[in-house]
Structures are given as C-alpha cells and as structure tokens.
Amino acid sequence: MTDRYPGYDVMAKRWTPSWNEQTRRVVDQRLAVLREPRFFSGAEWRTLNAVCARIMPQPKDRPPVPLPAYVDEKLHMRRLDGYRYAQLPPQDVAWRRGLAALDDESRAVHGAAFHTLASDQQDTLLGRMQRGELTSVAWGDMPCQLFFEHRVIPDITHAYYAHPLAWNEIGFGGPASPRGYVRMGLDRRDPWEAAADRGV
C-alpha cells in the first residue's frame, strides 16, 4: 500500500477540539459494528464477502474495514436511501436476489460458487454485471447493471469512505467540530491536517 500521509491518523484527534462528544459516540458505534450477519444467510454472506473484497480491495498489512458487516447492518436496520429506481425492488429483495443471481451465473460459467473463484474470474463477472451482460433467470425483472450501480457500489463504497481508515488514506481531515479550520487557501495546511509525503 502507498502511504501518502505517513503518521497521519484521524483517530489521534479524538480527544482534541476537532471532535465533540456526539461525534466520538457515532464513530465508536461505527467501529463496533457487529461482525456476524443478522440479515444475510450463510450462502449470501459468503458471496457478499467476496464481492466486497473485489469492489474495494484492501491492504494486507492491516485488518480490513468489515464492509460486509456494514451492508448487513444497513439492511438489518432498514436504513433506506429515500428513493429507489422504479425498475429495482426494495433494497432487501434486491440484495438477496442479486447475490443469488451472481452465484448462479458463477456456477453456470465456472461450475463453482462465486466466492471460490479466482479474483480475476470474480472481476470479470462483476464487470459483466456493471455492463448489464448477465442473463441468469435468477435476476428476474431486475436489471443487473442497475443492481450494480445503485446497490452494490453505493452500499459498499459508502461504508468504506465513512471509515476513519479510509479518511487516513486519502488525507481527509475527518470530524471537525467544534474546531474547524483556519488556513483556507491553496497549499495551506493547518497543523491538525494530514501532511503529504510527496506531491501528485
């Protein structure tokens, strides 16, 4: 992994004026997410784990952000997005059907479950999903590219970039309340912001 901001850790600001009490509470709760599925079945969970690992591959030198757990939590808690495309079923139906259909495609093409495939085989299937090329009857009337674009991608990537480890990687300042920022202009940095190791 490239470490663009060596030594920078958003969590180190936890007891500085950048974090207030409610923010500490919210981030603590996020980090304490339950690792066992409450919504997904065993087979779905295995497929989901494999999908997350390809959509957002993570460095090997640290414990991964538990992305499947966040997807499961969203569905278990029924956190809705406030809308859905007419061609998509509600999120719980979409996820169950989508994971089953992906596994079905995998068995049809490779004769094996999706989570047992090699990464490049998994990527190929995911790429075909993104382009709308998967045709298993298990999709029903749900267009696979809409499932990819509006369920798989946001539910997984939002969970990742809401995690402090991701903030460290991209140099985001993280929580900022009550203290905000003082040095606002181009190429200006407050001492409590990430310092880059190198330029672009």
């Binding site: 409610q22 919210v26 981030v27 956190r79 859905r84 061609q87 993280g174």
Partner: peptide, 22 residues
C-alpha cells in the same frame, strides 16, 4: 448536541422514506 461531525450519521436530516423514481 445532536449533530455529529460525520457525513454518514447525518443522513438523519434527509427524507429517507421510500419514493419511486422513473
């Protein structure tokens, strides 16, 4: 007291009940 400095948590401000878009 309620507003965390956090993008995800603050989805609490939105109208999140279902709507269908076509």
């Amino acid at each position: 007291e309620d507003f965390a400095s956090d993008e995800r948590e603050q989805e609490q401000l939105y109208w999140l009940d279902e709507r269908i878009c076509d």
